[in-house]
């Protein structure tokens, strides 16, 4: 395995750390502790993935960093600017693509972009050139003069990202940009984001609950759980922390999994990680060569396996280790941060 090097831009006037978060704490009225002491550094010019289930605190963190919300304690700088003391300057330096689209449905795509450009001080020929350029880049030229209300989810998202980029920001925030998109639109947006991060020195902070999204796009990843950052590093580093492969065993009988736990834990170098109905996962150092041993041990106790898969470590395993529960399970836990926009009153 190779170490992914972190590109550190140290251009004149541009800090090498694009986002610095120090001990942020935020409790919503009603006692939901959205952030419980979050600290973070995002190097300039990279894509940083913030990973976590709904309610982990990702959106709250993004709202504070984009000056929309205020923390109870702690502080943060974006592009070297203090978000609490200099919010107006921060707003000029950042592009924001929120979870809920910021697109005005009663205006056309072009008008949405022009308004955003004008608010950022662009005008005249420069504004026209910039708006046209973005419409072309995001393949929105054909629908530019239609009301955004009629746009598909994918088109609306593209317009959102274009609006976030219209003033050539130093830092772009993308809060769950591909949630609700079909696989094709998602993949198109991924390609676009990769292009953006390669082309300029743009720093992108991306929140997602898709592990594959973070794995593919982000140079560094932080995993959030219940208002805390529980792990941070490059995807490779995090996966390397997972010793060994994951072997998943499916059983023919639903109650066989429980019986299998003690059998497998008795084997040297095998550790059971999760047990569900008729299904369990174990961690072993060399999955492929140990599968026969595992199957033989089960066979000896009369437990029949229906299917066995071996997987190299994934971010899901990392999440599992740090957040203490399977990602899919945490997803179904009651949401804490996504619905608060309108419910905090």
């Amino acid at each position: 395995m190779t170490t992914v090097s972190i590109p550190m831009r140290a251009d004149a006037g541009r800090p090498a750390v694009a986002i610095r978060v120090e001990n942020l704490e935020k409790t919503y009225p009603g006692g939901v502790r959205a952030l419980q002491g979050v600290s973070l550094r995002v190097p300039a010019g990279s894509i940083f993935g913030l990973l976590g289930a709904n309610g982990a605190g990702k959106s709250t963190l993004v709202r504070i960093l984009t000056t929309l919300s205020m923390p109870d304690r702690g502080g943060a700088t974006v592009a070297g600017l203090d978000v609490l003391r200099r919010p107006v300057e921060v707003r000029r330096a950042i592009g924001v693509v929120a979870q809920r689209s910021g697109v005005d449905g009663n205006a056309t795509g072009r008008e949405n972009l022009s308004l955003q450009a004008r608010l950022h001080g662009l005008r005249g020929v420069e504004l026209e050139r910039r708006v046209t350029g973005l419409l072309e880049d995001f393949e929105l030229m054909d629908t530019a003069d239609r009301l955004a209300r009629s746009y598909s989810g994918g088109m609306r998202r593209k317009l959102d990202v274009a609006m976030g980029l219209v003033h050539e920001p130093l830092v772009l925030f993308l809060d769950e940009p591909t949630t609700g998109l079909d696989p094709e639109a998602r993949s198109a947006l991924w390609t676009e984001l990769e292009r953006l991060s390669c082309a300029g020195g743009l720093t992108i902070l991306l929140t997602t609950h898709y592990l594959e999204e973070a794995d593919r796009l982000a140079e560094r990843v932080a995993i959030m759980d219940r208002g805390r950052i529980v792990a941070e590093g490059t995807p490779e580093e995090l996966k390397r922390g997972e010793h060994g492969d994951t072997v998943s065993v499916e059983f023919a009988a639903a109650d066989a999994a429980d019986a299998a736990v003690s059998v497998l834990n008795a084997l040297a170098d095998v550790r059971v990680v999760t047990v569900e109905r008729g299904y369990l996962r174990v961690r072993v150092s060399d999955g492929a060569s140990r599968v026969p041993t595992i199957l033989a041990a089960l066979e000896q106790e009369g437990i029949r396996a229906a299917a066995v898969t071996v997987a190299r470590p994934s971010l899901d395993d990392v999440y599992l280790r740090y957040a203490g529960r399977s990602f899919a399970k945490a997803e179904s836990a009651p949401a804490g941060d996504s619905g608060l926009g309108g419910a905090a009153a």
């Binding site: 929120a98 809920r100 005005d104 608010l119 950022h120 926009g341």
Partner: peptide, 16 residues
């Protein structure tokens, strides 16, 4: 309406 659509938050995070 604009609050529900996310347009207000969008404006509040812009230089407007």
């Amino acid at each position: 309406e604009e609050m529900d659509a996310g347009v207000l938050d969008h404006f509040l995070a812009s230089p407007l």
